[in-house]
Nucleic acid binder design. Structure first.
Length: 311
DNA sequence: GGACTTCCCCGTCAAGAGCA
DNA sequence: TGCTCTTGACGGGGAAGTCC
C-alpha cells in the first residue's frame, strides 16, 4: 500500500469513528454534542487524570488538517494530551470499579483463555541469545535451555534442549541435541560460561553412536571461546569476561536484542489491552444508549401526564 | 488477472510515567 | 537517577475485497 495514502486512510478512519460515536450519542436527541463538552472539560482541566475522548483527539486532528502551518504546535498539544492519558489497565480498572460487570485487567494479566502471558510462563532466563537463523535461546536457571522461533508466538515456539554429554567428547566440548522440527541450515549460537555452541556439519563431529541415536536431529557442540568465531554467528556474549571491544559490542548487541524482544512482547500485550479497553467502551456506550432511551421515554411520559389537558 | 484499496497485525522507535 | 514499562506513531507485510 502506498504510504502517503495510508496516513490519509488512518486519519479518515479516525474521523469516521469519531463522527459515528458523536452521531450515536446525538441520536438520543437530548445530549447536545457530548463530545464537545468532554473536550471543553478536558481542556479546562489540564492536569485531569482522565481519558481524552476520541472526539478530542479528532478535534486536534482536524486542527492539524485545517491549519497545516500550525501542525507542529498542534501535534505537540495532541501529544501532551495523549501523554496525560493513564494506561489502559488503569482506565479499565477504574471503569470496572464504577460499573459492575466490567471485567478488570489484572496486574499479571491472564490471557482471555486463562493462560498467563506467554512470556511469563517461561522460566526466568538468565541469558537470552539469538542464533544465526533468528531463533532465541533462553538459558534459565538450573541449566534449562529453551529455543523460541522468531515467527512463532511465544512459548509455542519453544523447544526443549537436551544436554547430553557423550561418553568421549572432545576436551571442553559437549553434544547438545534439540528436537528441531525443521532444521534448515547450520545453526550456531553461544551459551554462557565462555563457551560457544556450534552445530555440527552433518553431525560428523558427533560420535557415531550419537548420530545413530538422534536420527536426523542436528547435534551441537559447546566449544571453548578460543575457537575462531564460526561463520553465521549473529551475536553472543560471555558474561563475566568482557575484555575486548568486540565483546563489549557483542554485549551491547545482546542487550539490544533483549530489549527489542521485551518491547515486542510489551507491544503485543499493549495491543491486547487496548482491544479489551475499546470493547469495554463499546459495551459501555451500548448500556448508556439504552439508559438514555429509557430516560427520554420517561421524560415524555411525565410531560404527557403533567401537561394540561386540552380537551 | 492485475492494480488498487482496505483492514489487520506486527516490529520498532521514542517519549513519558512509574518505581526502587 | 537510572532502569523498566507503557503506549502512540510509523512503516512493512499479508489477506481479502473491489474495480477495470
Amino acid at each position: 500500500m502506498k504510504k502517503c495514502g495510508r496516513k490519509k486512510y488512518i486519519k479518515r478512519n479516525l474521523r469516521q469513528m469519531t463522527m459515528e460515536t458523536i452521531e450515536s450519542q446525538q441520536d438520543g436527541s437530548v445530549t447536545d454534542s457530548v463530545a464537545e463538552r468532554e473536550s471543553a472539560y478536558m481542556q479546562a482541566q489540564p492536569g485531569q487524570n482522565s481519558v481524552p475522548t476520541l472526539a478530542q483527539v479528532a478535534t486536534i486532528t482536524e486542527t492539524d488538517e485545517s491549519t497545516e502551518s500550525e501542525g507542529v504546535i498542534d501535534s505537540h498539544k495532541r501529544r501532551e494530551i495523549l501523554s496525560q492519558r493513564p494506561s489502559y489497565r488503569k482506565i479499565l480498572n477504574e471503569l470496572s470499579s464504577d460499573v459492575p460487570g466490567v471485567p478488570k485487567i489484572e496486574e499479571e494479566k491472564s490471557e482471555g483463555e486463562g493462560t498467563p502471558p506467554k512470556i511469563a510462563t517461561m522460566a526466568v532466563p538468565t541469558s537470552i541469545y539469538q542464533t544465526s537463523t533468528g531463533q532465541y535461546i533462553a538459558i534459565a536457571q538450573g541449566g534449562t535451555i529453551q529455543i523460541s522461533n522468531p515467527g512463532s508466538d511465544g512459548v509455542q515456539g519453544l523447544q526443549a534442549l537436551t544436554m547430553t554429554n557423550s561418553g568421549a567428547p572432545p576436551p571442553g566440548a559437549a553434544i547438545v541435541q534439540y528436537a528441531a522440527q525443521s532444521a534448515d541450515g547450520t545453526q550456531q549460537f553461544f551459551v554462557p560460561g565462555s563457551q560457544v555452541v556450534v552445530q555440527d556439519e552433518e553431525t560428523e563431529l558427533a560420535p557415531s553412536h550419537m548420530a545413530a541415536a538422534t536420527g536426523d536431529m542436528p547435534t551441537y557442540q559447546i566449544r571453548a571461546p578460543t575457537t575462531a568465531l564460526p561463520q553465521g554467528v549473529v551475536m553472543a556474549a560471555s558474561p563475566g569476561s568482557l575484555h575486548s571491544h568486540q565483546q563489549l559490542a557483542e554485549e551491547a548487541t545482546r542487550k539490544r536484542e533483549l530489549r527489542l524482544m521485551k518491547n515486542r512482547e510489551a507491544a503485543k500485550e499493549c495491543r491486547r489491552r487496548k482491544k479489551e479497553y475499546v470493547k469495554c467502551l463499546e459495551s459501555r456506550v451500548a448500556v448508556l444508549e439504552v439508559q438514555n432511551k429509557k430516560l427520554i421515554e420517561e421524560l415524555e411520559t411525565l410531560k404527557y401526564i403533567c401537561s394540561p389537558k386540552t380537551d
